[in-house]
Amino acid sequence: MTATVHTSAALALGDDALVLSHRLGEWAGLAPVLEEEVALANIALDLLGQARVLLSMVGNEDELAYLREERAFRNLQLVEQPNGDFAHTIARQLYFSTYQRLLYGRLAEVQGEFAGLAAKAVKEVAYHQDHAEQWTLRLGDGTDLSHERMSRACESLWRFTGEMFLPLEGVDVDWTGMKDAWLESVSDVLHRATLEVPQGPQSGAWTAGAGRQGLHTESFGRMLAEMQHLHRSHPGATW
């Protein structure tokens, strides 16, 4: 395995965790109920921990997080999508945590550079997936309004889900099998939540693997501007 392959995979997985953690951190103080302040922060902290391990595998975590330009980030477009309402955040969590649980479950079973991290992270991610599933059930099968909002959220994020299953160099898993397992798992949850499985395409002209190549959506640049501003304002300082 070459160093290049190792780097791109670690950056892809690390950036996913870093960016989603940041988005979840934006909920602090704004969650719909106090228990969710604790839960969302918990998930954000798990993801930040994963990001720090992954980024540190290929460089200095802070240089990578704070000094790269937007086009150098390798995260999925899904995770950078703005929080929207609580339903959007939950739909994003359902799609991503199901993916991460399947991926880390597989990575934990094969010898490789990510096995150690995956073995630990898969337990965290199992909780994230359960959290997302429980809320999908409550919102989907709650009130008419919550059903409508959850339905809309699942639809609107669907087009970002195809990118998750494009093979990542250096990550040796059965991607087609992953996609099938993901679809089965997500469909089961949506069905139990009385929601339709979205019928639209899972990717489009701008979403088919774009994030992994450094092409992002407009809100991502603003997110990075906020995240990186202080660090970049004091070059060379330690914190």
Partner: peptide, 9 residues
């Protein structure tokens, strides 16, 4: 939180 200057912080 969104402007913390290092990942540790």
């Amino acid at each position: 939180i969104t402007r913390a200057p290092s990942l540790r912080r």
